[in-house]
């Protein structure tokens, strides 16, 4: 059907993020933060064991980044906020 003359036709492009798409909490390397401090923060924020926290810290140190957690966006944002409170370089990324 053709639009009436003078009718404004709006083209809408809707982008939606599926609720099912997990988000990653990623911590990036920072040469200033102490390794022991980073490990302690991972234990505090995520409740990880010392071994698991150390594994992630080493990943950050050696690979420049580590995925600390994946899940719903809201929780991921809360984790990033907490990590920023501890002054770690944390970001949110959509999981692929």
């Amino acid at each position: 059907m053709a639009p009436l003359e003078g009718t404004l036709v709006e083209k809408k492009t809707q982008t939606s993020t599926s609720l099912d798409v997990p988000w990653n909490v990623v911590v990036r390397n920072d040469p200033i933060n102490l390794m022991s401090y980073v490990t302690l923060v991972f234990q505090r924020v995520f409740g990880y064991s010392k071994e698991r926290a150390t594994k992630h810290m080493m990943e950050v140190h050696e690979n420049g980044r580590s995925i600390l957690w994946s899940g719903q966006r809201e929780q991921a944002e809360l984790y990033v906020q907490q990590l920023h409170g501890y002054l770690l370089l944390a970001v949110l990324e959509k999981a692929h």
């Binding site: 906020q81 920023h84 409170g85 002054l87 944390a90 970001v91 949110l92 990324e93």
Partner: peptide, 27 residues
């Protein structure tokens, strides 16, 4: 450095600045 962006999305970064950074400042 003390107040980094949380992602590459401009909208979320703006919200972060408005709603999260004041809390970080308090901490």
């Amino acid at each position: 450095r003390l107040y980094p962006n949380p992602c590459d999305e401009a909208e979320l970064n703006a919200d972060w600045k408005e709603y999260v950074q004041p809390d970080l400042k308090v901490i």
